[in-house]
């Protein structure tokens, strides 16, 4: 365990070094969020009755999404890992007495956390000072806030576990770049980062909500904005837990298979 912690610290502090990058990221995400809300405002003005969420809930959804972008974006992948698979450096990593799946997992967690930690606060503070339906509002009660925290953690881990699969699939395909691009862009839609899932038409939405991608940002962000409330919270969190375990198991299984392949080919 200690080696993973020190590995985590190393990654985390390298992430912190990029100060101006963080500042630029904050500005970018703030503007990005503002534009997103302006789009929805325009649709709200066009036909408020067709709007499936409260406008203020939507605003909170988007601000939280921007603030914690680094935790939930599946396209935020590490090129170092891809490179080490492609150029065979992975055989060095295999020589170390470390479980490669766990190491990559810890590494991704640390990378994403260090980015999010630097960026979330300013965005959250700015956004909460914005005027009423466009700003970030507080959750309805303490209970939904607690559940927000729990599901946020679960969602984050689901994202990392899923990204692990993307890395591992690189072993088995000839065009990792192509696969990655398509996968990542479709997931954005499934996860609710193109438009929040409530905006999807009935039928499609119910199917999407069962997929692992809905267990990423969708659940915590909607619990925060009270769009998910009551008993649905428990089933959503349960589903997250189910997907987290499944993804990790599949990931570990595939890793073993991939490593056998590396050993046979000699890296």
């Amino acid at each position: 365990m200690r080696k993973y912690i020190s590995f985590f610290r190393l990654r985390f502090s390298t992430g912190l070094q990029y100060r101006s990058a963080a500042l630029a990221g904050i500005v970018t995400q703030f503007i990005w969020g503002a534009m997103e809300i302006l789009v929805f405002r325009a649709f709200y003005k066009a036909d408020a009755s067709a709007f499936p969420m409260e406008l203020h809930a939507l605003s909170s959804y988007i601000w939280m999404q921007q603030a914690f972008l680094a935790l939930y974006m599946t396209w935020f992948l590490e090129n170092e890992i891809f490179d080490s698979i492609k150029n065979g450096n992975i055989s060095y990593e295999l020589c170390r007495p470390i479980n490669i799946y766990n190491m990559w997992f810890v590494r991704s967690v640390a990378n994403r956390l260090s980015r999010a930690v630097l960026r979330c606060m300013p965005i959250l503070i700015f956004a909460s000072f914005l005027p009423a339906p466009f700003g970030l509002s507080l959750p309805k009660d303490l209970n939904s806030f607690l559940w927000f925290l729990i599901t946020m953690l679960l969602g984050f881990l689901v994202v990392v576990a899923f990204c692990m699969l993307i890395y591992i699939v690189t072993f088995f395909t000839i065009s990792p770049q192509g696969v990655r691009m398509v996968a990542v862009s479709m997931i954005e839609l499934f996860a609710g980062s193109v438009i929040p899932l409530p905006f999807l038409p009935d039928g499609i939405r119910q199917v999407f909500e069962l997929l692992p991608f809905a267990s990423m940002q969708n659940v915590p962000l909607r619990i925060y904005s009270s769009d998910i409330a009551g008993k649905v919270i428990y089933t959503s969190a349960g589903l997250q837990l189910f997907w987290l375990i499944t993804l990790i198991l599949v990931g570990k299984m595939l890793t073993n298979k991939a490593l056998k392949k590396v050993e046979i080919q000699g890296g």
Binding site: R9, F12, S13, T14, L16, Q17, R19, L118
Partner: peptide, 16 residues
């Protein structure tokens, strides 16, 4: 200047 170490990294965040 970029120094190694965790606390140095935090320091450099505010004062380069």
């Amino acid at each position: 200047k970029r120094n190694a170490g965790f606390s140095e990294a935090v320091k450099a965040l505010f004062n380069k």
